[in-house]
């Protein structure tokens, strides 16, 4: 059941839903930390999307196993390699974002957007 679901289109729909949750959360959540979380959800969705692209039924890790020849038997390693980079990127973005939030907190003592804007305009 689950296997069927994962190998059909449903997985893509799931990823799409997850992806859209990102902007949704970023717009609706007023807390800045939650915004960062939503942003991460969105990035993870894309990472998952790439990984699913590289998946193949019945194939194994792209590490050469004695006697197992032919590209059919291995999953595509390229998306994994790409996503390593993407994870690093997303990590550093999160890092910078949190650093900025620390500064915001120090300046205004507040992380709720509405209250923050009110204090900024004072």
């Amino acid at each position: 059941m689950i296997k069927e679901m994962l190998s059909s289109r449903v997985i893509y729909w799931l990823i799409l839903v997850m992806f859209m949750l990102g902007p949704f959360g970023m717009i609706l959540q007023k807390n800045l930390v939650k915004k960062i979380m939503a942003m991460n959800v969105m990035q993870v969705a894309v990472i998952a999307f790439f990984l699913v692209l590289g998946q193949k039924e019945g194939a194994t890790l792209p590490i050469e196993i004695q006697g197992l020849m032919g590209a059919v038997n291995y999953i595509n390693p390229l998306p994994h390699a790409l996503m390593l980079t993407a994870i690093v990127v997303s990590l550093s973005i999160t890092g910078v974002a949190l650093a900025l939030l620390l500064l915001v907190q120090k300046q205004y003592g507040e992380l709720e957007e509405d209250e923050l804007i009110r204090r900024m305009n004072q």
């Binding site: 990102g22 894309v46 999307f49 990127v89 973005i93 923050l116």
Partner: peptide
């Protein structure tokens, strides 16, 4: 600082959209 944070959030959405397109 807050302007930068805002740009970061929105800019990352942009980058992620681009990455999706590349996918």
């Amino acid at each position: 600082i807050f302007a930068a944070f805002r740009y970061l959030i929105i800019g990352t959405v942009g980058g992620t959209f681009y990455l999706l397109g590349v996918g």
